[in-house]
Design a protein around this nucleic acid. Structure first.
Length: 472
DNA sequence: TAAAGATTGGA
DNA sequence: CCAATCTTT
């Protein structure tokens, strides 16, 4: 019995359900495979920095698998259509009787896996799929009426019980016997993606690095509920890119935080808040599985399609490039453009500015984020955008529109973050960064080259309010 | 995971 | 006159 493990977004050894099961059932070795599908990644708007990070992690995974005598093979297909033939053929060639995978829940991905399963069956190869991506699997919990939870708070209550009672981590796989199959080199570049501008120094690859980050974050987790909102402070875990490619599992994160919570007799607000954020990740995945159309350019609330979403190229361009004239919005967008990552508070601020103050179609923003983020995840990104645009499940009420100046006053009071990302505002006093009139005065009197407001604040806000009010 | 406008209560 | 509080969106 020999097992083939097809790695996708689960690039780790520890707490990997499919890998553990594959190793447990094999007595003649385990083979790993990773499929490179550049055209599919382009269709999905994957960011270059994300693909680079993915490939770097495939490389470190290959090294660690080699220590377990598991050779990692690399195959390249154009897109998912070629996956069934590729995987079934590879299983046969390497003498594997079963393919092990951890499920991916997106529409294209699960359809691909169904097709791979069929192709394997025809080749006399079995396929076993496991739930591993989230803490509580999608569809595992539902309301008393048997429907899916579309509101977060009741979902979280059931999620909490389920996670604590039924979820456990997976043991490490054992070392395998040596087999006569050598591993493949991992390519240095991928056609269609430019690796030269990615800030790899900010995100070293590997399972060890992810664990170090979790360790470091654990030490200050009690401050998370306060500091997570302050972009100039390292108050968040900085684990999202690692979670996204599965270099660390959400379960590992959950158990660490839960341990800390228990050791403080439930008195750690930071740990509680972080677990809640992990729950949001599960929630949006669960929404996507229950209602796949949300991830296919449809709002969860159909009537919001009546909103005359604007398609103004020049407003959109100002937003993308961080030249809206609103300091906190520009700072956030420049952080995204320069580093491939944006602080979560700013993701909300910038998303709300685009969808409400500019009333630009939320799908434009969703796509742009995806094309830039190192941690871009379909369900979380979509959930976040539909939350901000008030089109989604349990999204923000349409009349709760962030005021960019109030937001920066609260979360960047000294303007530290704004001045870091927008150096031209270095000489503008903090008070003026949080006040439109004072900002205009300061820019004029100091002779600073900073754009005028792309939209009048009050006019933009009223335009969004009346668009939502007139929905039937 | 809000902000704006109105109202109140104290200087 | 200002800040705290309530109400509305």
């Amino acid at each position: 019995m020999r097992s083939l493990v097809w790695f996708r977004r689960d690039l780790r050894i520890a707490d990997n359900t499919a890998l553990f099961e594959a190793a447990r059932h094999a007595d003649d070795g385990v083979v790993g495979v990773f499929l490179i599908t550049p055209e599919q990644w382009q269709k999905h708007d994957d960011a270059s920095c994300k693909v680079k990070f993915l490939i770097e992690n495939v490389r470190t995974l290959s090294d660690r698998l080699a220590e377990l005598n598991i050779p990692l093979l690399i195959r390249t297909c154009h897109d998912f259509q070629e996956a069934p033939a590729c995987i079934s053929k590879l299983a046969s060639e390497t003498g594997c009787d079963t393919v092990y995978i951890n499920r991916e829940y997106e529409v294209n991905e699960s359809k691909r896996d169904d097709n791979v399963s069929l192709a394997c069956e025809q080749a006399g190869v079995a396929m076993r799929r496991f739930h591993d991506r989230t803490i509580v699997p999608p569809k595992a919990i539902s309301t008393k009426e048997g429907r899916f939870y579309s509101v977060f708070t009741p979902y979280r209550k059931v999620w909490d019980l389920t996670a604590r009672e039924t979820v456990e981590t997976t043991p490490d796989p054992e070392q395998q016997p040596v087999i006569a199959i050598g591993r493949d080199p991992v390519p240095e570049s991928i056609t269609g993606f430019d690796f030269s501008n990615a800030r790899s120094d900010l995100w070293p690859p590997g399972e060890d690095e992810a664990q170090r980050r979790l360790d470091r974050f654990s030490e200050s987790i009690s401050a998370y509920n306060v500091e997570r909102d302050i972009p100039s402070v390292r108050g968040t875990s900085l684990l999202s890119p690692y979670l996204n490619v599965g270099v660390i599992s959400a379960r590992q994160c959950f158990f660490r935080a839960d341990q800390i919570l228990e050791s403080s007799a439930g008195e750690n607000e930071g740990a509680k808040t972080w677990i809640s954020e992990l729950t949001w990740r599960d929630f949006y995945n669960h929404v996507m599985v229950a209602c796949p159309r949300v991830s296919m350019h449809h709002p969860f609330k159909p009537k919001t399609n009546q909103i005359p979403w604007r398609t103004d190229q020049s407003d959109f361009e100002a937003w993308k490039t961080g030249t809206t004239g609103y300091p906190i919005v520009d700072a956030g967008m420049r952080q995204l453009n320069q580093t491939g990552w944006m602080h979560n508070r700013l993701r909300m601020v910038t998303a709300m500015f685009l969808t409400k103050n500019l009333l630009v179609d939320w799908r434009w923003g969703e796509k742009y984020f995806m094309s830039r983020l190192i941690d871009g995840d379909l369900s979380a990104n979509n959930g976040g955008w539909q939350w901000s645009a008030s089109t989604g499940t349990d999204s923000v009420p349409y009349f709760r529109i962030f005021n960019p100046f109030s937001q920066s006053k609260r979360f960047d009071p000294d303007g530290l973050f704004i001045r870091k990302m927008c150096p031209e505002l270095k000489r503008v006093p903090a008070k003026a960064l949080h006040d439109p009139a004072k900002l205009s005065d300061a820019i004029a009197s100091l002779g600073i080259d900073y754009p005028n407001f792309v939209v009048d604040y009050k006019a933009g806000r009223e335009r969004a309010l009346s668009a939502f009010k007139s929905l039937k």
